[in-house]
């Protein structure tokens, strides 16, 4: 199976790393010969139909910052769309930076791969949150597979879990902590009694929060995931603008301490149900499934037959996210 990876940032690199780590195991377990036929970044691409060397890709990127410096097969200045035409691949891994304004350029990449008859795996929330129906129906029309487990909750299995493991159940609602950065900030505020501003600053220094933390702390990232869950698991047809969003930047130590007295914690909760499509700070009972700390994500699915089912997992991280992408690729391979 040949894979083309667009985007060589944290996620793209994670994917190449797990390919390298698991190559032999995949061959033994599934008889799967996984080859990377192309990788792109802003400098250009490296393309080789017989397969690029994972370790060399990482080394070149690490040392020069440009994948186009890959010996013999590096091409400088080639665009992602040109790469999709030039490279021989079966499955596209779309891992370019997320854009929540128009979902581009990822959306164009994905649609092109579909119309070329290729399967797609992505971690990119932008196009999923803005154009889910369009993408899903294009995949259907072109009879290709489209998987996006990594877009919600990183390594926390929720989409495939609901589709496959809970396939006999109707899902009535989903409630969860869908953003690791805000959970980290709120957990530390609860533990230390410090102010939001102070913990945010420390989180930025630790690399847990981004320099521009708005998408995380104002709830936009979690809202994208709410949309993806609503559309993919509950058959809704909603977009980012349909979500009522409140972030955590106004949470004060005073409110956390009042909550604690009553045995509650404040968490940023995403809700998908028939009467709410929302991201907001909510009170959760200490000791309940939502009382997870650090950057963990959690989701509780209320189902008709199995009642409440809760999953917990690492919500971000290069290797963790790549693990979800790898699972999607394996599941596509098994269906071929």
């Amino acid at each position: 199976m040949k894979v083309c990876i667009l985007g060589f940032g944290a996620v793209g690199k994670g994917v190449v790393k797990v390919f390298s780590l698991k190559k032999e195991e995949l061959k033994e377990r599934y008889g799967m010969d996984l080859k990377i036929s192309a990788v792109t970044d802003t400098s250009g691409a490296a393309i080789c139909d017989e397969g690029l060397d994972s370790d060399l890709l990482l080394e070149v990127k690490e040392e020069t910052g440009k994948v186009s410096n890959y010996p013999d097969y590096g091409i400088s200045g080639i665009s992602n769309l040109e790469v999709l035409d030039k490279a021989d691949y079966d499955c596209l891994v779309e891992a370019t930076p997320t854009d929540i304004e128009d979902g581009e350029p990822a959306k164009t990449h994905i649609l092109k791969a579909f119309s070329d008859g290729k399967d797609v795996v992505t971690s990119n929330k932008g196009p999923l949150a803005l154009s889910f129906k369009e993408l899903a129906s294009s995949a259907r029309d072109n009879s290709v597979k489209f998987k996006f487990e990594a877009s919600v909750g990183g390594a926390m299995p929720v989409i495939n879990f609901a589709h496959e493991t809970l396939s006999g159940c109707d899902i009535d609602s989903i409630l969860g902590i869908l953003n690791g950065t805000t959970n980290y900030i709120l957990s530390r505020m609860a533990k230390e009694g410090s102010s939001y501003e102070q913990i945010l600053k420390e989180s930025q220094e630790l690399g847990i929060a981004e320099t521009n933390p708005e998408q995380d702390v104002e709830g936009l990232d979690a809202a994208c995931k709410v949309v993806i869950l609503a559309n993919s698991l509950m058959d809704m047809d909603v977009s980012l603008k349909d979500v009522e969003i409140t972030g955590i930047s106004k949470i004060t130590p005073e409110s956390i301490s009042l909550a604690k007295k009553e045995g509650y914690l404040i968490k940023l909760i995403g809700e998908v149900s028939s009467d709410a499509l929302e991201v907001a700070p909510r009170l959760v009972k200490e000791g309940s499934p939502f009382a997870v700390e650090g950057t963990l994500n959690v989701a509780t699915l209320k189902t008709d037959l199995a009642e409440d089912v809760t999953v917990v997992g690492k919500g971000a991280g290069s290797i963790e996210t790549a693990s979800a992408i790898l699972s999607d690729i394996i599941s596509i391979y098994k269906q071929i």
Partner: peptide
């Protein structure tokens, strides 16, 4: 009803415990 004042009044927090008829929670 509980009130916790902050040096910045806009950051003050108040907690309400409400008794509600069963089944009308949402």
């Amino acid at each position: 009803f509980n009130l916790k004042m902050s040096d910045h009044p806009e950051k003050s927090a108040s907690k309400f415990i409400i008794e509600a008829e069963y089944g009308k929670r949402r």
